[in-house]
Design a protein around this nucleic acid. Structure first.
Lengths: 240, 240
DNA sequence: CGACTTTTTGAACCGTATCAAATATCGTGG
DNA sequence: CCACGATATTTGATACGGTTCAAAAAGTCG
């Protein structure tokens, strides 16, 4: 589950800690800082549903999501769950400052992380303002996304919500067609249950709306997971 | 609407720029920085409904909310509105970094601001890491609040939503009873329409739920605005 | 192939939206 | 201070979208 990282001589844009080309923290570190980071960073893999926060609800390490999708959620006393955020690669995961983590963090799909212990990162942040800026940017992006989703939850009907989610995933995970950039293909990293919990709907309603979009030719679905969007603009229109 | 600020010799915890005791930016500034800030800060007052962002959707100044409530909202293409955030005194308003402002900002109630031009603030932030931290903290708080509200919008029914909003306002604006700290009194800084737009409901549903809570003795309401919560814990239970 | 899980589909019910009208409140001027 | 009109809020009747409960179909894994 966790392995030390060997320092390697990759091209600068590739994270030396996790050997993956990503737009996370590593891009803004000096060579010396990268070396420090590589010494303490750990690359971990996680299966769908696996909780990513150990030490009872206290995130002791910060992480780059290098592959897959991470699900942030809260549960109500009555047991109902609401997904409050999705982090796609190459998002940053965790929070250095402020109150403790109030959300459940778990892998939605197969997930690869490049973790760095909190204290090491705090050290780096203290001396590297650009890195701190990068963390601030991530929290601002998270805030924008949360507010976008408030609009979806508050003012869109079931059809628009499902379209909005497909659009979100298409933009983050989708591969545009070579000849037709409006055509996008991807595998859903979420179960119907996850989708419902993100959309504030039931799985039945999610399923019905996907069926409806399928009958209308807005999406094609194989094996419940493999999705083709023939026309992204059409989906955008439907998303409200 | 805007007046220069005279430098005064207040106690340290009182903002020299706006002469108001608040937990905004001023608490973390040095004497020299406070002087700089006082030179360029402006205190402004605004009537309910007044837009607070000039220069077409570009917030050119950062501000402390020193009194009142500011409403952040987005509008859908179909004209429906969703309130995505409320800023109460002494919250900070605006964003220095990241993409441009994507939200409408307007006074919900009578609002007093202590504004500081963006470039002056950027100057201060560059030399004062504690101030930058304060800004980061605010955005993390905003993120937490947005995610709280996603749970409300996604998984609570109308009654719980209205109770949640009353609770939110009670906590930020309420005066607890001297002999009974569970008893809270406040004036609603929002119209029914604002409430509906924040809760993802219609004004009719909001009104009905408030009536219901009133009949049940959970709240007392006078003049549609003046609210008494006899038992905050009871309201907390109802909020889900 | 067969057991299990996930997803889809169906029918009835319920909560909220919608449309409509009555009532309360506020601001303004007599 | 009261009367008046404008606006905000409350209340009522009906319709619709999404939930709930139930069962069938599709997909997954041993």
């Amino acid at each position: 589950m966790s392995q030390p990282i060997a320092l390697s001589s990759e091209v600068p844009a590739t994270c030396r800690a996790c050997n993956v080309r990503h737009a996370g923290m590593c891009a803004v570190l000096t060579a010396a800082e990268l070396a420090t980071m590589a010494r303490s960073a750990r690359r971990t893999q996680h299966a769908p549903g696996e909780p990513l926060v150990v030490e009872d609800s206290k995130l002791t390490s910060y992480a780059n999501v290098t592959d897959g999708v991470v699900k942030l959620s809260r549960v109500l006393r009555n047991g109902r769950q609401q997904v409050v955020g999705l982090q796609f690669a190459p998002d940053l995961l965790g929070r250095l400052f402020g109150r403790e983590n109030l959300v459940n963090v778990e892998a939605a799909s197969e997930v690869d992380l490049c973790r760095i212990p909190k204290d090491v990162l705090e050290q780096l942040v203290a001396t590297n303002p650009v890195l701190k800026q990068r963390l601030l940017d991530q929290s601002l992006q998270d805030l924008d996304e949360a507010r976008d989703w408030m609009v979806t939850l508050g003012r869109k009907d079931a059809r628009q919500r499902v379209a909005s989610l497909l659009l979100l995933v298409a933009r983050r995970c989708g591969a545009p067609g070579i000849d037709d950039p409006d055509r996008v293909v991807f595998d859903l990293p979420l179960t119907r249950s996850d989708m419902a919990d993100f959309l504030g709907l039931t799985i039945e309603t999610v399923s019905r709306q996907i069926s409806r979009l399928r009958h209308e030719g807005v999406v094609q679905v194989a094996n419940h997971r493999h999705v083709v969007i023939p026309s992204l603009p059409r989906l955008e229109t439907l998303a409200g």
